[in-house]
């Protein structure tokens, strides 16, 4: 592999949170003796990302995804650990570094609310010192890709959420950043708009060989866009690798789908495996990997089977299980 463009080594970010006791007396007491405790938002994370990669960052709420992106963007000073992005240390906030990346957060906006988005683009052009011809070229290209020609002159506050998100993206990309941190870029968008965003992100990654880290709670985003996925929970990495490898690593069972000729008592399936769903004539049973052939044979022998299908579990389901298992542990 070529030299990675992002290097993160044992990164920790603890938030010091001031503990407040409830009520007035509690407030007064805390004035005199402040109690702090640490929220371990990121707790020893390491990874490397190569140029042009599109990596999905997933994890349940509060896993530490946004915090990691904020450290990579130089907004937060880490508690400990080593971070290098494009050979820079992000929190030194060097101009040369800041001109080469962009952070887009689905819930925060930079556009001027009462003005057409064009005005914000022009301001960013000056801030990022983008030469006129390059600005024109980039803007035209982005406007065409996102199909926003006709809304450029409309005040931002009159745009729909999806249209606004597209404009936010243009504002963030007008300086052609090499690295893009996208924190829940599809949040709140309808299915059609989500799809358009995805198409855009994929195209942008390909066309400009941009390195992208994307977080999302929509599995479709990750499934469609990211070859590589990093799963994070409670500030720790649970998995880092190809999307399909998640199945091998975490799914210890497969799904057997049977179509029955006659109705059978649900109890009877218990001896085969775990009954996931049963709606005559279709029953889905989950079975340990090692027992699959045995179970299939038994089904065919003892049940009125019309059709039998063996499948891998759905990635969504596996990930949900991984998260819940983790949450039960802690």
């Amino acid at each position: 592999m070529e030299e990675p463009i992002i290097k993160v080594g044992d990164l920790k970010k603890y938030y010091k949170v001031h503990q407040k006791e409830p009520g007035l007396i509690g407030s007064v007491k805390s004035l005199f003796s402040r109690k702090y405790y640490d929220v371990k938002a990121v707790d020893g994370v390491s990874f490397e990302i190569g140029e042009g990669e599109l990596v999905g960052f997933i994890g349940p709420n509060g896993a530490g995804k946004t915090t990691t992106l904020k450290v990579l963007s130089g907004l937060l000073y880490p508690t400990s650990g080593k971070v290098q992005v494009l050979d820079f240390t992000p929190w030194e906030r060097k101009t040369a570094f800041q001109k080469q990346f962009s952070l887009v957060m689905g819930q925060k906006n930079q556009l001027w609310w009462d003005l057409p988005a064009m005005e914000s683009f022009i301001l960013n052009k000056e801030i990022y010192e983008v030469p006129d011809d390059q600005y024109k070229k980039t803007l035209d290209e982005l406007v065409e890709l996102l199909e926003v020609e006709d809304i450029l002159k409309i005040q931002v506050r009159k745009l729909s959420l999806g249209q606004r998100m597209k404009m936010e993206l243009i504002a963030a990309l007008i300086h052609s950043p090499k690295i893009l941190f996208l924190d829940e870029p599809t949040i709140g968008l309808d299915v059609v708009m989500q799809k358009k965003m995805r198409d855009f992100i994929r195209e942008y990654n390909k066309r400009f060989n941009a390195t992208i880290i994307l977080t999302s709670h929509y599995m479709d985003d990750v499934k469609e866009l990211c070859e590589r996925v990093i799963i994070i929970d409670h500030g720790k990495i649970l998995f880092d690798g190809k999307l399909e490898a998640i199945i091998k690593k975490f799914a210890d069972h497969k799904l057997l789908t049977v179509i029955l000729e006659r109705e059978v008592d649900a109890e009877k399936f218990r001896e085969i495996g775990k009954l996931e769903s049963y709606e005559f004539p279709r029953a889905v049973i989950s079975v340990k990997r090692s027992k699959v052939s045995e179970a299939a044979a038994k089904l065919l022998k003892d049940f009125p089977v019309d059709d039998l299908n063996i499948e891998e579990a759905q990635i969504e389901d596996i990930i949900r299980e991984v998260f819940t298992a983790e949450n039960v542990k802690s």
Binding site: S73, S102, L103, K108, Q110, I127, Y128
Partner: peptide
């Protein structure tokens, strides 16, 4: 409070000036 400062801080310009 709204976190808009985050975006200002990523800009390649002195944040106090901006």
């Amino acid at each position: 409070q709204r976190g808009t400062l985050d975006i200002f801080l990523t800009k390649p310009i002195n944040s106090q000036f901006y």
